[in-house]
Design a protein around this nucleic acid. Structure first.
Length: 400
DNA sequence: CTAGGGTTAG
């Protein structure tokens, strides 16, 4: 059975690769070529906890820390280290710390190895991911569709889309692995990222023929791809498919549409869509509201931008640091441009209180504007708060 | 302890 399933899926991959999508897939492949010597890190640069530590020290410290079982159980620890090393281009350090993990008993646990495979993928180190997958039997660790899926996903994260067809051809049949919905969804994601949403649609067809039912994630992946390309009528067809599949949309189905409407300068329709979501019991989140804020900032509608920022706080979806950083980086320069110093001051205080990092130059601008606006006390307060937070070395203009 | 094989903006 498994051979039939993946044989068909592989055929879709092959056909689409040899037809219209060839150039696109090739292009997607060549895009990553120039960086071939240095793997592409798929993890966005986020503020890390251990900043400015030199890579050798980090590797050494990390290996010592992983002697503790408690430390090993927290995937976030691994992600932070790998992200930081990848950002520094220290791929041998990543290899060092991940290979080191083989000495722990955890390697017999497939879930643990899956985590390591996906870390290699996030660091853009697909060859290492593949090698680890191949070594699993020697490590006394059983392989199921779960580790195969981790490997597929590593292709997507390292943008090596052309490897997916090879893996589908080579592995499932040989290892008697039956593909599941996650496998198909990963292939859908690969086609979407490789700029071939048409092929991704073909995968949906194939999975239905193979007796697997597409799920929410299958459709949401397609929504994102079509709306990103402003292909609203294609996306409408996906809504119909979803409906006939009996799948109920969630907030992540609506968010790409909100962004597309805003990008198409249809902000009032986006607002209506938010209302529709609420009617249907789908609660808008920070992504939904940020889409609107972005539109109102662009249209220079200060009142509406402020109102929706208030909605963020009300819905308690402004808690996330990263989310807040995005909101504030949208809003702060705009509010300064509009000369609403009091609101800018409030935003800065909230940013500091929530420890969500915003661009230091933007915050300095607020200090300067406060001074210009004869609000010296507020300016001083902000400088003091920035200093206390240890994140901002703000200066009063008179200090210079 | 709660999670990490698959889906969001910049």
């Amino acid at each position: 059975m498994s051979s039939t399933l993946c044989g068909r899926l592989h055929r879709i991959f092959r056909t689409t690769t040899t037809q219209t999508t060839t150039s696109r897939l090739k292009k997607a492949t060549t895009i990553s070529k120039p960086k071939k010597s240095k793997p592409v890190a798929a993890v966005p640069a986020l503020p890390t906890t251990s900043k400015d530590e030199n890579p050798e020290a980090l590797v050494k410290r990390f290996k010592k820390q992983t002697d503790k079982a408690h430390f090993r159980s927290r995937h976030r620890n691994y992600e932070a280290a790998v992200r930081s090393l990848a950002a520094a281009g220290e791929f041998s350090g990543i290899e060092d710390i991940l290979e080191h993990q083989k000495k722990y008993d955890n390697v017999t646990d497939e879930r643990f190895v899956v985590r390591l495979i996906s870390l290699y993928g996030q660091a853009g180190m697909l060859d290492h991911a593949r090698k680890l997958f191949d070594e699993m039997p020697q490590l006394n660790c059983g392989r199921t569709v779960m580790s195969f899926n981790a490997l597929l996903s590593a292709c997507v994260n390292s943008k090596k889309y052309d490897k997916i067809g090879e893996l589908l051809h080579e592995i499932p049949e040989k290892l008697s692995i039956t593909l599941d919905v996650v496998s198909y969804n990963t292939v859908i994601k690969a086609f979407c990222d490789a700029d071939s949403p048409e092929s991704a649609l073909a995968v949906i067809d194939q999975m239905e023929k193979d007796g697997l039912k597409p799920n929410l994630i299958s459709f949401n992946t397609l929504f994102d791809a079509f709306y990103k390309k402003s292909r609203l009528s294609d996306a409408d067809k996906v809504w119909e498919m979803m409906q006939s599949n009996g799948t109920v949309p969630d907030v992540r189905s609506y968010n790409p549409k909100l962004r597309a409407l805003v990008a198409d300068k249809r902000v009032s329709e986006a607002v209506k869509l938010i209302e529709e979501m609420e009617t249907k019991g789908v609660k808008p989140d920070a992504f939904s509201i940020n889409a609107l804020i972005k539109g109102f900032c662009r249209d220079e509608n200060l009142e509406e931008a402020k109102r929706w920022y208030g909605e963020l706080a009300k819905n308690d979806c402004g808690r996330n640091k990263l989310t807040n950083k995005v909101t504030l980086s949208l809003l702060l320069p705009f509010v300064c441009d509009k000369g609403d110093i009091d609101f800018a001051f409030k935003l800065c205080k909230e940013a500091i209180a929530q420890r969500s990092l915003v661009d230091a130059a933007n915050m300095q601008r607020v200090v300067d504007l406060l001074v210009l606006g004869l609000k010296g006390e507020e300016a001083k307060e902000l400088v003091k708060l920035g200093k206390e937070s240890k994140h901002y070395a703000l200066k009063l203009p008179i200090d210079e």
